[in-house]
Simulated assay, not measured.
Amino acid sequence: MPTELEELVEFLHHGNTEIRTIAAENLVGYTTARPSLFKRNQLEPVKDLKLLVRDYAPIAKNALTMLVNLSEDQEILKNLADDGDFLEALLKKVTDANEPNADETCMLLANLAKSSNITKLLTLKREVPKALSTSPIAIDQLLDCFVAGTNKNATYDYLSYLFADLVKEDSGREYFLASRKEDKDIVPLTKLIVFTEHKSTIRRRGVANTIKNCTFSVSSHSRLLLDQTETGVGLLPYILLPLMGSEEYSDEDTEGMPDECQLLDPDKEREKQNDIICTLLDTLLLLTTARESRDHLRKVKVYPIVRELHLQVEDEDVRESCDRLVQVLMRDEEGAGKEVEVPKIQEVEEDEDDQIVEVL
């Protein structure tokens, strides 16, 4: 005999809207407490939830929340990420300027990025949402949502976690680091780096990890460090500014610093999240791989900024990250062109962008 909970799960596909609504409302908590309930009968409840995502707003919101939680399970994650029709339903929601559950949908997409199959977004063609984008490519549309979303009900912040996971793949890094003919030859990463000092911690964290994962493309380091006026990405100011507070530097220290890092306001605040600071420091460390890049970081006076950061932030992880970077920047070079060994992506400790989003 099925238990009361098992019977409640069955009501997710009931023909009566009110009954489906009640079932969805009462089952949200069990997606974390009893996830096995939703794997019955070859994932039938998950299939029901995928349909309910298309239902009217209150039911859809609860369905999305449940799928966000359930996507931690690898079997369920595969079922969701491999379903092309379901992915299109999510994309339609995110790119709809009037969708009330766009942010919940972004959270689910961020979780689906734990599946390598989600890289299909880099080439997937779909109908162009004309009020939002001019590109038929799904990832272009998502990036347009993130940068200038027109939905007053959404922040799109969780898309930054999706981007951070996409650039763990070679194809993802290639997309974010290449000029897009579909977008006036703009490099997609240049659209993201401006958010390293955004008010949203989620957005700052996701963007910081996206930037860091892009720097595993060692061949792109020169372009990342070059100013945009020199056909580069102009990355450095956006990494360095979050590391800086209102402290004053000597003329010797500031000579050579990027213009954006000089004469800061007296109320300039440093990034408050230590994990984000460590991510930015790891990015700088990755950028020291080649002798040419190390010399550039020295020239623009990265060391004084890291020195002050070490003095001002009393966090062991931050100070250890500062020490590792300083050891590379301040050491004597034993020969031109010498390179530093870069850790493989798999060896990097799991960051916040590697974690499954969960809604309690």
Rank of each mutant, 00 (worst) to 15 (best):
M1A: 10
L8W: 15
F11C: 15
R20I: 01
T21F: 13
T32M: 11
P35Q: 00
Q42G: 13
Q42S: 12
L43S: 03
E44A: 11
K47T: 09
K47M: 07
L49E: 06
R54S: 15
R54E: 13
Y56C: 07
A60S: 15
T65P: 11
E75C: 08
N79Q: 15
D83A: 03
L90S: 03
K92N: 15
N101K: 07
S115W: 07
N117S: 13
L122S: 03
T123H: 11
T123M: 09
L124T: 08
K125A: 06
E127M: 05
K130N: 08
L132N: 00
L142D: 05
N153S: 11
D157S: 04
L159I: 08
L162S: 00
A164L: 06
V167H: 02
E174T: 12
Y175T: 05
A178G: 04
S179A: 15
D185M: 15
L192M: 06
G206C: 08
G206M: 06
V207H: 00
A208G: 04
I211R: 05
K212W: 13
C214I: 08
S220V: 04
H221N: 01
L224D: 09
L226K: 12
L226W: 01
E230P: 05
V233R: 01
L240A: 03
L243F: 02
S250D: 08
T254W: 04
G256W: 07
G256M: 09
Q262L: 08
L264E: 00
K268S: 15
E271T: 02
Q273E: 12
D275C: 04
I277S: 04
L280W: 09
L281F: 02
D282K: 13
D282C: 08
L284M: 05
L286I: 03
T289I: 05
S293I: 02
Y303K: 14
Y303D: 09
R307Q: 13
D317Y: 08
D317N: 13
S321D: 12
D323A: 15
M330N: 14
E333S: 10
G335P: 09
E339R: 10
V340Q: 14
E347A: 10
E349C: 07
D353T: 12
D354P: 03
